[in-house]
């Protein structure tokens, strides 16, 4: 073989269309950026602190775990950063530092790494962390309590808490335009409806999330809320407030669409999304929790493997009947 060229040998295909995990995660962060920036503008320095600590500690936890498990560092692919960012966007601006650290620990370590890392997690890490924190320290997610010190120049009230406590009459002063522009109380990056919708559309157009899930989630919320409202409009608010407050939009575009914990087939995606949307409104309207998005998505995450078993028959598959 003297004088022969040394060639690179590998298996087909010899082309790749260039997509990567890192591009997917950084584009998702880019899409979440408008809503996060709006939160920073409204809440100022505290929000920046919470968001930075979230992203920083999420990446730190993953790096620490990488070292402990003697694995090559995987923080470069942006999944820990994205998890931290989405978590930070839901926490209140006044969240104490220890809560942020616990939240990212639950999300990254208990939500992702112990299942074998990205792709092995049965739940959306952000959703799991929010569920654990929400059950452990419910007051921390009472945005009316947490954010009372802020003077933002508009009516600072958390629509879903008002709705739960005082009925639909208490939320009539929220106009759709206010809700879309973030003139409501809530998580740092969860209030700016227009920004979240724009980010979601960007992700759908680029193909980074599966539109079927977002679409059916929103339709599930819309239809269920409308049915409740139509049955008794004095007890249940209309669909607009359900769609544009709480975690509905960030849930539809950023949380329910988490890759590992959601289905990939067409019909299962519709069932999964619609199921989460319907459960959200059921929990809000007749459950004890103020917002139902977290538990609704968590429940559908559990059901995901079962739902995704509904699949088309493969080419040439022979079905043998007993």
């Amino acid at each position: 073989m003297n004088g022969e060229k040394k060639l690179v040998v590998s298996h087909a295909p010899f082309w790749h269309d260039g997509r990567s995990i890192a591009a997917r995660n950084y584009n998702t962060m880019l899409a979440a950026l408008p809503a996060a920036l709006m939160g920073l503008w409204i809440f100022g320095g505290h929000a920046l602190g919470v968001l930075s600590l979230c992203i920083g500690t999420a990446m730190a936890w993953e790096l620490v775990l990488n070292k402990i498990m003697r694995r090559p560092p995987s923080i470069g692919n942006g999944s820990a950063a994205l998890t931290g960012m989405l978590l930070g966007m839901i926490l209140p601006a006044s969240a104490p530092f220890w809560m942020v650290i616990v939240a990212t620990f639950v999300a990254v370590v208990l939500g992702m790494v112990i299942y074998g890392g990205l792709g092995g997690n049965p739940f959306s890490p952000v959703i799991l962390a929010l569920a654990v924190l929400g059950v452990s320290w419910p007051l921390m997610f009472n945005y009316n309590y947490m954010l009372q010190a802020y003077d933002t120049g508009f009516a600072m009230a958390y629509p879903l808490a008002q709705l739960k406590a005082f009925g639909p009459g208490a939320v009539t002063h929220f106009s759709v335009a206010d809700l879309l522009m973030g003139k409501q109380s809530g998580g740092i990056g969860a209030t700016f409806g227009l920004g979240l919708i724009a980010g979601g559309l960007y992700l759908i157009v680029r193909g980074f999330i599966r539109w079927e899930i977002s679409f059916s989630f929103l339709v599930g919320v819309l239809v269920t809320a409308w049915l409740f409202n139509a049955s008794d409009s004095s007890a249940y608010a209309g669909p607009a407030i359900h769609l544009l407050s709480g975690y509905t939009l960030i849930g539809a575009f950023f949380l329910a669409t988490e890759d590992s914990s959601s289905p990939v087939n067409f019909i299962p995606m519709l069932i999964y999304g619609a199921g989460a949307g319907i459960l959200t409104v059921l929990i809000r309207n007749i459950g004890v929790y103020v917002d139902g998005v977290v538990l609704a998505i968590l429940l559908m995450n559990v059901a995901n493997p079962l739902i995704d078993a509904i699949r088309p028959k493969a080419l040439g598959k022979v079905v043998r009947n007993a």
Binding site: M1, E4, K5, L7, V8, V9, S10, H11, A12, P13, F14, W15
Partner: peptide, 10 residues
């Protein structure tokens, strides 16, 4: 590019 096989020698 999609189904070929790479060779180690010319």
């Amino acid at each position: 590019p999609m189904r070929g096989k790479a060779v180690y020698s010319l």
